[in-house]
Amino acid sequence: MNIFRGIADFSHLAAIIILLHKIWKSRSCAGISGKSQILFAIVFTTRYLDLLTSFISLYNTSMKVIYISCSYATVYLIYMKFRATYDGNHDSFRVEFLVVPVGGLAVLINHDFALLEILWTFSIYLESVAILPQLFMISKTGEAETITTHYLFCLGLYRALYLFNWIWRFYFEGFFDMIAIVAGLVQTVLYCDFFYLYVTKVLKGKKLSLPA
């Protein structure tokens, strides 16, 4: 494991925990897209089915289990426990426009035409666009709580660091995975606009609000 992978994984974990903690402490999921969180739960579930077929390391297994559990806990808090605070009217992104094309692409472009491989590929493609409902919600309401922007920053940082991880692995291990790299690039690009706002506004102590 290289330094980029290490920091990326913990940045990802930080993002997940920041979100859970925010919802739990404020007893509210206002401003959070439940749809993005459901997509992330689907991403983890379909990707980590390999927990049942192969053991890689204690670190690998623990992180996968933590990611899956936290994502389900988040969905539970949004749709069950704090349902009254869920802002469904603003969470109006049509997820079928993501899931259906991504499913089709996973069937067409994959490493091996086998169920687990197709589900793994599906999860990679889906993860690259899963944040769109959340970004759409922010663009619709024109603002985001600062803690929500920290969550998004950690999530974007995780993906950006994975790009460095892949460059590292290509040079030092001769390993690269085209599906993950292309999807990772797409995912990172989606965060660029947000990164700009985060650096120019949030880090200067201002609230993230978009011009009307």
Partner: peptide
């Protein structure tokens, strides 16, 4: 194998 290398990532 390549497959295991991929599944090592999270």
């Amino acid at each position: 194998s390549q497959e295991l290398l991929r599944h090592d990532e999270l």
